[in-house]
């Protein structure tokens, strides 16, 4: 291994150097929760830099889904692929983001198994900051995923009537919702033992959550009971909002719904996550 040569070249630890390092001068003052969370977010970005393969899901998923649904179902569902794209693209954007949030739990589960999390937990910092930081880092992933879906959509002929403002607003709302939904996955990642089981359970929740919604089709043709389910699914409201904003209308009531469900997600799963995190073995 090439590590050995470097190790031999570097001087062993000397007592003088160690002494000067231990006399570090005044202790720094304790940083606040925002700074520590952002610092953990910086760690997440560094990990993307060193392990860019982890972006496969945010790039391939959205491309695959957009192409598949547009061309497989577009003609059958809406008469033409072009027309379906106008309806589908905002929905696919929602689905892509929600799918990407799943990775949060899987990554966190892998991460927590490692000793470095013990060190984080033994630091005198605001306790949720390692988790909040990881979720902040994920915002970058969501943004990349969204950019890919929207760019691909524009290339295929999607024309948002709401213009750039509508698109940007809807992406921002998506980021807020995704950040809040992630606490569900962080909770799961602390309950389940292996990354595989996290992935399995997440999938099981994810499919009904995204498909039993108005992302792909108008729920009018569904049986009544299913329509009722679709109606309470927060993903439905999110898709309605994104669709509305992109096509030039501002569904204020629906936006309120999305924000309320976002707050509820954090209010319920945030504290459960923290209790689990605190008592993690």
């Amino acid at each position: 291994m090439n590590a050995t040569s470097a190790e031999q070249a570097s001087a062993p630890v000397t007592e003088d150097a160690l002494r000067s390092v231990l006399l570090a001068g005044e202790r720094p003052s304790r940083p606040g929760p925002v700074l520590t969370s952002l610092t953990f977010g910086w760690r997440a970005l560094l990990k993307i830099k060193h392990v860019p393969e982890q972006l496969v899901d945010v790039t391939m998923f959205p491309i695959m889904f957009t192409l598949m649904f547009t061309y497989l179902f577009g003609g059958a569902l809406a008469g033409s692929t072009q027309e379906y794209l106008q309806f589908l693209l905002p929905g696919i954007l929602v689905q892509a983001n929600v799918m990407i949030t799943m990775n949060t739990g899987i990554t966190l589960n892998t991460d927590i198994q490692k000793g470095v999390f013990d060190r984080f937990r033994s630091l005198p910092v605001w306790r949720p900051s390692p988790l909040v930081g990881a979720l902040l880092g994920d915002l970058v992933r969501y943004s990349i995923g969204s950019a890919i879906v929207i760019t691909l959509g524009l290339v295929l002929g999607f024309r948002p009537v709401g213009g750039a403002v509508g698109v940007v607003l809807s992406v921002e709302l998506l980021l807020v919702f995704s950040f809040c939904l992630s606490w569900l996955w962080t909770m799961l990642s602390l309950i389940l033992r292996t990354p595989n089981s996290v992935a399995g359970v997440s999938m099981m929740l994810m499919f009904p959550l995204t498909f039993v919604s108005n992302i792909f089709v108008d729920p009018k043709t569904m049986p009544g009971w299913l329509q009722a389910v679709v109606e309470v699914n927060p993903i439905t409201h999110l898709a309605t909002v994104v669709r509305g904003l992109m096509h030039g209308s501002v569904p204020a009531g629906e936006i309120g719904w999305v924000l309320v469900s976002s707050v509820l997600l954090v209010a319920v799963f945030g504290p459960i996550t923290m209790v689990l995190y605190r008592n993690k073995k």
């Binding site: 003052s29 940083p31 520590t36 610092t39 953990f40 910086w42 760690r43 560094l46 630091l123």
Partner: peptide, 16 residues
């Protein structure tokens, strides 16, 4: 996954 210096920077920032 991080480099040696990044690890120490991370902790130093977290500690203020």
């Amino acid at each position: 996954d991080l480099t040696g210096v990044e690890n120490l920077l991370l902790l130093a920032r977290l500690l203020g």
